[in-house]
Amino acid sequence: MLCDHQLVIEHINDYVEDKLSPEIKRQMEVVFDSCPDCQATYQQCLELYQMSHAWQSQNVPEWHRTSFAVRPPVKNTSWLNWGAVATSSLAILMVVFQLEISSGETGLMISFGGNQSEAKIASMVESQLTDYKNEQEKIFQVKLTDALEKQDNRTKLRLANWLEKSRDERQQDIKFVMTGWQSQRYEDQKSVDRQLSYIADNQIENNQVINQLIQSVATNQDSDGQSKQSKQL
């Protein structure tokens, strides 16, 4: 009888692993005795199992097990610019307009002082924005790398949770951080700074809010050049 090797194709692994019923096992042995091809396949299968046991298990080199777990979109180039601009805009507002932030019963109050003309404001904002942006981009990059390397898991988790929140909740968070900012002692400044940087991340809305603020300041100063203006966020 000509062997079509089908029995061996079907059962060879189970045969070597000794998982076959006595009946099929016996049939296999008959085939091995009569078909040199199947006999050779059996030998080969046996050798391959032996070879697998010879593998010397290697230790895993050190690697970062969570770097991807909460990975900010670093490769997105526009992200960094937006983030830097948003952060620096905030800083510029505070410097140029003597921005004051305080929380009251009705929510967060942002007040502006100063009496610059619209054109002057525009040019100041533009030039400072450019300078500040360039400067901040470098700092931003360093901070980001730094934060990642420190494996600040708590911060990353907080950030991950934060990113899952709705836009409204994020705005609340920003208000919270901004309110807290005032009362922070100097030594806490750096960590808050980092939180702000993170919040600016993916927060294009920030820019829109800030642009609205700038516009509203300019408008208000047209009608009232001197006195203090308030805007409710």
Partner: peptide
């Protein structure tokens, strides 16, 4: 959200 658990899980299978 436990990163520690994730790390432990990875360590069980990374080898």
């Amino acid at each position: 959200g436990s990163q520690r658990s994730w790390i432990n899980l990875v360590k069980r299978y990374e080898g």
